[in-house]
Simulated scan of single mutants.
Amino acid sequence: MRHIYRFSLAIVFSVAGFLHFKREESFEKVVPDYLPFKRFIVHASGVVEIVFGLLLFFKRPGKTLKNLINAFLLAVFPANIYMARKKLPLGTIELPKRLLYLRLPLQFVLMGMVKRI
């Protein structure tokens, strides 16, 4: 099961990171208004996700990498809350507000998966 979690997370992080560059404007909208340098935040978080994805593809993470991934997931959680509160689309997909809120626990599911790989 660990391999399934690891490779699933590798794909999720790699694709999400790539999309930060492919759909930059969509990701900028999700960065809360109170934060400056939205484009930099989108690019930096995209690079971090791509690096995490590649690392997970090639080796089983140690405790330090797991902690870094989970810290990152916590750091971007406010953007998910902001997205739900403002009813922002998920890329080009308009989701009902309740689904945007139901998406929030997914961050903790990912953190649980990280813990188990």
Rank of each mutant, 00 (worst) to 15 (best):
F58P: 00
L19Y: 02
L100N: 05
F72P: 00
L90S: 14
A44N: 06
F37Y: 12
L102M: 15
K86Y: 05
L104P: 03
G53R: 11
V12W: 13
A10M: 09
F108A: 05
F13W: 12
A79K: 10
F58W: 13
Y5H: 14
G91H: 02
R116C: 06
G91A: 01
A44Y: 14
V48Y: 06
H43A: 11
S26T: 07
P78E: 02
P89S: 01
P61G: 02
Y34K: 09
K66L: 04
K115G: 00
L99E: 08
V30C: 06
I93L: 15
F21I: 09
L56E: 01
L9H: 02
R60N: 14
R103L: 03
S45E: 08
R103D: 05
S45G: 09
Y101C: 03
F58T: 13
R23Y: 15
K115L: 12
P61N: 02
P96S: 10
F108W: 09
P32Q: 07
N80S: 11
R60W: 08
I93E: 12
K97F: 04
E28P: 04
F57M: 14
V12Q: 06
V114P: 01
L104S: 04
K115Q: 11
L19Q: 00
A84W: 11
N67D: 12
V48N: 05
S45F: 07
D33E: 14
H43L: 08
R60Q: 10
A16L: 12
K115S: 08
I41H: 11
S26A: 14
K87W: 00
V47K: 05
H3T: 15
L65G: 04
S8D: 06
K87V: 05
D33M: 09
I4N: 08
L90K: 15
F108G: 07
Y34T: 06
M83L: 13
S45P: 09
V51K: 07
E49F: 04
L99W: 12
K97W: 09
I93P: 05
P61T: 01
N67F: 13
P36H: 05
Y5S: 14
H43Q: 13
L73V: 11
L73M: 13
K63N: 12
R116V: 04
L55M: 09
A79F: 09
I81E: 04
V31Y: 04
R85A: 14
F13T: 12
A71D: 00
M111T: 04
E28L: 11
P105M: 07
F72V: 00
V30L: 15
